[in-house]
Simulated scan of single mutants.
Amino acid sequence: MGLDDLKNKAKDMIGQHGDKVDEGVERAGQFADDKTGGKHSEHIDKGEDKLKEGLRNFGDQQQ
C-alpha cells in the first residue's frame, strides 16, 4: 500500500464519516482547552473551525 492509497482511503473516510471527524476535532479542542485552563479558548475554537473546514475540503476533493 503506497502513500497515494493511504491518502485516498483518508479522503474516503473523511467524506463518509465527517460527523465523527468533527466530533474528534471538538474532543481534541476540549482537551487542549482543559489543559490550558481555558486561557486560550478563543484561539482553540478558531483552530477547530479551520481544521474542520480543511478536513471537509480534503474529504470532498475528487480524484
Rank of each mutant, 00 (worst) to 15 (best):
K35V: 11
K35A: 15
L6W: 06
L55F: 00
N8K: 13
N8Y: 10
R56E: 15
M13P: 01
H17Y: 14
G59Y: 03
Q61L: 13
T36Y: 10
K20C: 00
G24K: 07
E48H: 00
D19T: 04
I44R: 08
G47A: 04
V25H: 13
L6Y: 09
T36Q: 08
K20G: 02
R56A: 15
G15P: 10
E23R: 13
G24I: 01
G38E: 06
F58E: 02
Q63T: 14
E23H: 10
G29P: 12
D4H: 05
L6F: 07
H43C: 01
G47S: 04
G37L: 07
G38A: 03
S41T: 10
K50G: 01
T36H: 11
E48A: 02
G54M: 14
K11F: 06
H43Q: 09
R56P: 00
D19G: 12
G2H: 03
K11H: 07
G18Y: 13
L6E: 10
K35L: 14
G59N: 01
K39V: 09
G38D: 04
D33P: 01
D49Y: 09
D34M: 12
S41W: 00
D12Q: 13
L51W: 09
Q61F: 05
H43V: 06
F31L: 14
Q63H: 14
Q16T: 12
H17V: 05
Q63W: 11
V21E: 01
G38H: 04
G54V: 08
D60T: 11
E48S: 01
A32K: 07
D34Y: 03
L6N: 02
E23T: 10
E53Y: 02
G24P: 00
H40L: 14
M13G: 01
F58C: 05
G37Q: 07
K52F: 06
G37N: 02
S41E: 08
G38T: 07
K50Y: 11
K52S: 09
K7V: 15
K46E: 13
G29H: 06
F58N: 00
A32Q: 07
G37F: 04
Q61S: 13
E42S: 12
G54P: 02
G54Y: 11
G47M: 00
K50R: 11
G15Q: 09
D12L: 09
N57H: 04
H43E: 12
K11D: 01
A32D: 00
F31Q: 07
A10C: 14
